[in-house]
Design a protein around this nucleic acid. Structure first.
Length: 279
DNA sequence: ATCCTATCCTGGCTGC
DNA sequence: TGCAGCCAGGATAGGA
């Protein structure tokens, strides 16, 4: 499912086709994808704007709009589980999962496709307000050793749900949390305040290296959902140590990997490399 | 403060 | 072959 590396990949690949283009119109096939705004208002707000920048914040793709020299709001796109972005010639039949279409002045359109309809393409005037509750970016300087040590200490939550919490740290999802916890030898049920400082440092480093490596490999694809805007699968799934490998041998110690449920999420681990907390 | 459950959705899978 | 039922998954709301 799209997490930080997949979203970063999508942002990078759609960027060249979007930056500098003027929006000539928009089509809305599924209004709830707009996150509460009606289709008429949405079209009015984006039409005529020029795309100034395409970036990412957490799992959001951020498209900054301007008109002349003044800001003209932002398009925020969240792929959730099954969302995709494609830039194709206007008029291309993208099938029945097309939800929102943004028409550009070069004869192409940005298509937002989403099988499960959980994703969003939202217009906002104030991006800062929209992102106010998010935790730090794991690949930024803000995610420092000192910050992470003290942030873990100040909570009494189990590691897995804490790392999935976007208000704590923004961008991780089920896959990369399982991978990072395994790589650092930490059980998903360990309480955050009981993780020693050195172990916290190790977890921080593994979170970063897992994400960086996944970005290099354009994310992970193991079902039909995640594809790059060019229609290609990522390749980080070949590097998985635990995710989706339950029943197979641990690549480190050989023990059969397990799958348990933590915080209503399928959770993959090695019970030898990641010893269970007491109690 | 933290946890748990339901909700949003569809397609793919299982079992009969 | 058809069909019912279940499941995954990110985020959030509301209740315990």
């Amino acid at each position: 499912m799209p997490e930080l590396p997949e979203v970063e990949t999508v942002a990078r690949l759609v960027r060249p086709g979007l930056v500098g283009r003027r929006i000539t119109g928009a089509g809305v096939a599924w209004e709830r994808s707009l996150g509460g705004m009606d289709a008429r208002t949405f079209r009015r707000r984006v039409r005529g704007a020029t795309i100034e920048r395409v970036g990412r914040r957490a799992k959001w793709i951020v498209i900054d709009l301007k008109e002349g020299e003044s800001a003209r709001g932002h398009l925020l796109c969240h792929l959730r589980m099954s969302g995709r972005l494609h830039v194709e010639p206007t008029g291309t039949d993208m099938g029945r999962h097309e939800r929102v279409r943004i028409d550009l002045d070069d004869g192409k359109s940005l298509f937002f496709l989403d099988v499960r309809k959980f994703g969003r393409m939202v217009f906002t005037d104030d991006a800062a307000e929209s992102f106010a509750g998010l935790g730090p970016e794991p690949l930024s300087d803000e995610f420092s050793s000192a910050w992470f040590r003290s942030a873990l200490k100040s909570r009494k939550r189990r590691l897995k749900p804490l790392l999935l919490d976007q208000t704590f740290l923004a961008g991780l999802g089920n896959i990369y949390v399982d991978e990072a916890l395994h790589a650092s030898g930490l059980h998903p049920l360990r309480r955050s305040d009981r993780v020693p400082g050195q172990k916290a440092d190790q977890l921080r480093e593994e979170i970063r290296s897992v994400l960086e490596e996944a970005i290099l490999r354009e994310g992970s694809s193991f079902d039909t959902f995640y594809r790059t805007p060019e229609g290609q699968p990522g390749s980080y799934q070949d590097q998985f140590l635990v995710y989706g490998r339950d029943g197979k041998p641990c690549r480190t110690c050989g023990r059969t990997l397990k799958k348990i449920v933590v915080a209503q999420r399928g959770t993959h681990l090695c019970t030898r490399c990641q010893p269970a907390p007491r109690g």
